[in-house]
């Protein structure tokens, strides 16, 4: 008797649960599963949105890897961007967070100010930087001029264009700092007290407590920010259009042009899948190394 009542409640709960999650479930099928499956299928076809797709097997991929210099160029540019931008975000973000974690008055105000560049994004930020880095009348070159340095052509110089786009990350570092800050504030203060009683100095406390306990946050940041870096698009689209000399022709710019301007939709599908594979590979790699350097409290490390 009791048991049947219990299972009736369970059944009721299951029904209600599925009713509740149905919006997400439907969305998941229509806006995630369906498109991803089709992208995979299209990547094996020759297809220009107007005509029906034709199955061509691996030809898109073979062409991409053997006969498409633009693919390699965009992959190279994007990887270089990640290599330049990611350390900035990871390291400067941490330094800024350490500063923001100091206990002085008015810290909330600073925190608010530093986070501003992270909330404004998209085209407006790109426009702002186009103006700041104008070779002739931009603020940065004007300032450099005052101290007697002739500033480079920034976005308009093939050598400087990519570093210029990457350096825009410095300004947005507040976004990553805030995540670190949450990690820092989650470290129990008793640990520092105990260390002090045991005679540990500041530096020791930093390297033996702060850094190890921050590694989970660092790990999270590494993955999230890396994905974000690979997805760089708007900056290049608005400022450089991929130029000069394809120096900032990022992967997603290539994807966009192939897919939505030339309507080479089959090939663009293959392009995006390669990028996703690269991102996934990197994530798995970071995850794999994480066993060595990420410290999780409550885990027995001695074993």
């Amino acid at each position: 008797m009791k048991r049947s009542k219990r299972s009736a409640i369970d059944r009721r709960q299951t029904i209600d649960a599925y009713v509740c999650i149905s919006p997400w479930l439907i969305g998941f099928l229509i806006f995630t599963i369906m498109p991803i499956s089709f992208t995979i299928y299209y990547s094996f076809t020759r297809w220009t949105i107007m005509e029906p797709p034709v199955w061509i097997g691996l030809k898109n991929y073979i062409f991409m890897f053997t006969k498409d210099p633009i693919f390699w160029q965009s992959l190279k540019v994007t990887s270089l961007y990640v290599v330049m931008s990611l350390p900035i975000i990871i390291i400067f973000g941490l330094l800024l967070a350490l500063l923001l974690n100091l206990k002085i008055r008015g810290m909330n105000l600073y925190r608010t100010l530093f986070y501003i560049p992270a909330v404004i994004s998209g085209v407006s930020v790109a426009m702002l930087w186009t103006w700041l880095l104008q070779p002739d009348v931009g603020m940065v070159n004007t300032l450099l001029d005052l101290v007697g340095i002739k500033g480079p052509g920034w976005f308009w110089d093939p050598v400087w264009a990519l570093p210029s786009v990457a350096s825009m990350s410095v300004w947005k570092v507040g976004g990553s700092a805030v995540i670190y800050l949450a990690g820092l504030q989650n470290i129990p203060p008793q640990l520092y007290e105990a260390a002090r009683i045991d005679g540990a100095g500041r530096r020791q406390a930093f390297f033996k407590i702060t850094i190890p306990l921050l590694t989970p946050t660092l790990f999270f940041q590494l993955i999230i920010q890396m994905i974000e870096c690979f997805k760089v698009f708007t900056e290049a689209f608005v400022i450089t259009k991929g130029g000069p000399l394809k120096a900032t022709y990022f992967y997603l710019l290539y994807f966009y042009e192939e897919g939505f301007q030339h309507f080479n939709t089959g090939y663009a599908s293959a392009l995006i899948l390669v990028l996703v594979t690269v991102i996934m590979g990197m994530t798995v790699f970071v995850n794999y190394t994480s066993k060595r350097w990420v410290y999780y409290a409550g885990e027995d490390r001695a074993s």
């Binding site: 998941f28 806006f31 995630t32 369906m34 498109p35 991803i36 089709f38 992208t39 299209y42 949105i49 994905i227 690979f230 997805k231 997603l252 994807f255 897919g259 939505f260 939709t265 663009a268 599908s269 995006i272 899948l273 990028l275 996703v276 991102i279 994530t283």
Partner: peptide, 16 residues
Amino acid sequence: TMMIPLQTKLIPLFSM
């Protein structure tokens, strides 16, 4: 699904 880049789904969605 939070981690999947939007671009992965864009072409089929567009054609839909």
